[in-house]
């Protein structure tokens, strides 16, 4: 199987997760988790528009050497993705100290994004590794907060039937797993051979979306 074929699995796993999430929407539509479904559909939209844009040179940018860039769509997606997901954790956690920290994370993520795109990186031509690394770390810590709160709760919580638990696992695996990738890509993004590395990214993404899909099916209706 060639790399480019494998690449196709990712958008379709996203689509699968979004569709399954919509089917089981009744389980969590009354909670803040509904925003997760919205963001999932937004990811699908970005992915397919990005693909279409690259194919038909639609809404894309070219550099001096004539190379095509649709990165701004993905950069925009991540800039929206992290604050929304962090907000879901903010709303799902009760501990006031953790809440304060997550609020700080959201603030700093937005600050880092603004500084990055204004002074350091180009929104059109570069992969958003710096905000991504920051966002992933913030997300990982928020997930840990959520886990700690689950552990500390004196209620009997069937955690493996909770949707946010599976979402957390998926997010942890992909976003923390790709931190090394994101750090390295800064220097080698444009070198052809580095493309093999995208395979790691795609495998982790595939795992994440399959975990989301499983979570939507397996989870019980939220109270």
């Amino acid at each position: 199987m060639s790399l480019s074929t494998f690449r196709l699995f990712v958008p379709f796993s996203e689509l699968l997760a979004a569709i399954v999430g919509t089917i089981y929407f009744y389980k969590y539509k009354h909670t803040h988790l509904k925003y997760f479904l919205y963001i999932l559909w937004y990811i699908v939209l970005t992915e397919f528009t990005g693909w279409y844009a690259a194919e038909y040179s639609f809404l894309v940018f070219f550099d001096e050497e004539g190379r095509l860039y649709n990165l701004w769509m993905y950069n925009l997606m991540y800039t929206i993705f992290f604050p929304v997901v962090l907000t879901i954790y903010l709303k799902s956690i009760n501990n006031s100290v953790y809440k304060k920290w997550i609020k700080l994370f959201i603030f700093f993520y937005i600050l880092i994004s603004i500084l990055n795109w204004s002074f350091i990186q180009s929104f059109k031509y570069e992969w958003s590794e710096l905000p991504d690394v920051a966002g992933s770390l913030f997300l990982a810590i928020s997930v840990i907060f959520y886990f700690i709160e689950l552990l500390r709760s004196d209620k009997v919580i069937i955690y493996h039937r909770k949707l946010l638990f599976w979402i957390s696992i998926g997010l942890l695996i992909f976003h923390v797993g790709t931190i090394p990738f994101n750090i390295e890509i800064t220097h080698y993004a444009l070198q052809k051979s580095i493309h093999n590395l995208f395979l790691i990214l795609w495998i982790l993404a595939l795992i994440m979306y399959l975990i989301f899909t499983f979570g939507f099916i397996w989870s019980k209706k939220e109270d």
Binding site: I173, V176, I179, P180, E184, L197, L204
Partner: peptide
């Protein structure tokens, strides 16, 4: 290196 770090993290 990236492969190993990623695997370790996962």
């Amino acid at each position: 290196v990236i492969l190993i770090t990623t695997l370790t993290v996962v």
